[in-house]
Simulated scan of single mutants.
Amino acid sequence: MPRLAFVPPAPGSYRLERIMKAPDGIVLESDGSVRRLSEFTTGRITLFSFIYTYCTDAKGCPLAYATLHSLKSTIERTPAMHGKVRFVSMSFDPEYDTPVAMRSYGGREARDRRGLEWHFLTTRSSRELAPMLDGFGQDVSVAALQPTGQRAPVLSHMLKVYLLDTGGEVREIYSTSYLHPTVLLGDIKTLLQERARR
């Protein structure tokens, strides 16, 4: 990971505002089970992002994956954080990104339940996905329409990673400029301290 161009404030020395409530809807886990999105956005501090498995934009989905992968290792080495944080990656393209494709994309991260849980979700249709995209304020457009069953070559979207508290409230939204393990870790620790003070 590149070095940060600034020094983030110490965890707990600032407050993260409540931005919005995460939406709910029907999702598919990478094992094919039908679940509610709220099962993955409440109960633990959650880093949530929309991705698609064939994204090649270096400042898009691959950046999010690499950042979260790095952060996952740090969290797993921190006993005080065990069982309190999860990651969720959800597909923009349910037609191509089936549960099997999401499980393949997630690789070991999708199957390993011994450390930090990382869920790779999709939906049964674009129609079911749309209200969740709207609820998160995540825009996506298809660069070119393809025949049914063939993936579009490019989905255009602005990378956003959402930090949710245990109640399912979005507390921070990271763009490319601030998507760094050090920043994310500080904000997670801030939410953990907030929860401990209650």
Rank of each mutant, 00 (worst) to 15 (best):
62 P>V: 09
134 D>V: 12
32 G>F: 15
11 P>L: 05
89 S>R: 12
26 I>W: 00
29 E>P: 06
45 I>E: 02
177 S>A: 13
140 V>G: 10
156 S>V: 08
60 G>E: 09
83 G>F: 14
139 D>N: 11
41 T>E: 05
93 D>C: 12
110 A>E: 08
79 P>S: 06
157 H>D: 00
130 A>E: 14
36 R>S: 10
186 G>D: 13
2 P>A: 03
90 M>W: 02
122 T>P: 04
176 T>V: 06
188 I>W: 03
81 M>H: 05
104 S>T: 07
190 T>V: 03
186 G>T: 07
120 F>P: 01
37 L>E: 11
175 S>Y: 15
55 C>R: 04
1 M>V: 11
164 L>Y: 10
188 I>H: 01
20 M>H: 02
100 V>E: 04
158 M>W: 15
158 M>I: 12
187 D>Y: 01
137 G>S: 04
69 H>K: 12
150 Q>R: 09
33 S>H: 00
145 L>S: 04
177 S>N: 08
110 A>S: 14
24 D>E: 01
39 E>G: 06
10 A>Y: 03
83 G>Q: 07
165 D>T: 00
106 G>E: 13
142 V>L: 08
109 E>T: 15
14 Y>H: 02
1 M>D: 10
103 R>V: 03
182 T>D: 09
147 P>I: 09
106 G>I: 09
123 T>Q: 10
111 R>D: 13
19 I>S: 09
116 L>I: 14
121 L>V: 09
24 D>M: 02
141 S>E: 06
6 F>V: 08
161 V>H: 02
141 S>F: 00
36 R>W: 00
155 L>H: 13
142 V>W: 03
